[in-house]
Design a protein around this nucleic acid. Sequence first.
DNA 1: ATAATTTACTTTACACCGTTAAGTAAATTA
DNA 2: TAATTTACTTAACGGTGTAAAGTAAATTAT
Lengths: 212, 212
Amino acid sequence: MSIAARKERQKEELKGKILEAAKELFIQRGFEETSIRNIAEKIEYSPTTIYLHFKDKDDIFYALHQEGFILLNQYLRALQNVADPFERLKAITKAYITFALENREFYDLMFISRSPMNALTKDKHDEKWEEGNKAFGALFGTVTECISKGYFRGMDPEILSFTCWSMVHGICSLEIRGRCSVISEANQENLSANAGDIINQMLERMHQNLIQ
Amino acid sequence: MSIAARKERQKEELKGKILEAAKELFIQRGFEETSIRNIAEKIEYSPTTIYLHFKDKDDIFYALHQEGFILLNQYLRALQNVADPFERLKAITKAYITFALENREFYDLMFISRSPMNALTKDKHDEKWEEGNKAFGALFGTVTECISKGYFRGMDPEILSFTCWSMVHGICSLEIRGRCSVISEANQENLSANAGDIINQMLERMHQNLIQ
DNA sequence: ATAATTTACTTTACACCGTTAAGTAAATTA
DNA sequence: TAATTTACTTAACGGTGTAAAGTAAATTAT
């Protein structure tokens, strides 16, 4: 039955083309300015064809947000050979910020936009946010390791992990959603990187204080 | 010329009614689900009437986001009589989180949504984000006072202020945009408040470390 | 008091949007 | 060769923001 196999292949091919077109458009123009009709026109199919491969618009952007997580993992994977968990934690916060600024639209989709989360609560009823869970798990693992080596003594690893995430997410999302105009022009350059340094400094001093 | 005065009054009245209707709708249903037509129907005018009072949809939500800042100021004003700047700083972070969670849609509009920022870059060409400047100024003032009293020695007050803002914004925006499902159910309760406590703890230990 | 003008709207219309239902031509199977 | 399935497209529904044109009432001018 190689005909069925070829058809399956062609179906996947078209799905890939839809996603590719969607990605290009949304990276150029952002999520809200990317319509099903735009995507369809780009791949030279009718708009309704897209619905044969994706449930709805949110479903497309859920798939794209998955690609974003693969990209984020590439940034983080490199840090897995940092032996000291505390050094690794600091490297994670820096890499996370770098990822966000180098892939703004992806970051927006993954952590700010409501669209991919809508896809979860609608279609995949009762399904969990696996991508988020996995990425958070990596942070959680490192924080837990830190605690087991005497850092952050007595703190809840999950809440502390969330707090670390929050701190860097705050920087990235204020930057991406254009709220940094309150900062003087001189400080706006490298603002995110500098704020990231302060966060790592805070983590460091927290540690220094505890071991004294 | 009291006729002109009355007309002016009536014009302002209608503008207020539009804003009131928009506010109710957007608090109930969120920004994206609130349309010009909805607002018009609610006040029993034709949709195009709204354009006699507001340039476009973003302009309406810019006005609403201003109301949000008035509300935020009410949360923060109470803390102005906390004499010690460091205690005030910690109170600000807590109050900020409380404001965000008690006024989620307003918070979204003020610090996450693109809409009011669009109004700035479009219409009010070259105008600055005054609301943001003013609110940030209050934080900046407190942080500067902290530094002048020996806290956070050697740090840039503006970048540090931004970092403090980022930390609490991160918590609030992850919560409001539904990214907290990665946390265990037990920890999801009071997650934001607990993360806020950790942030204050970090600020505190940073200080303790410096004065030792 | 009547005519001209301004004001405060509404109606209509345009060009989009996501999405569903119905139709169709080609490929495949019986 | 006929029946069926596949892979689409066309047409349509009900929504969106917004601009242009029309209208009736209020106001001003003569």
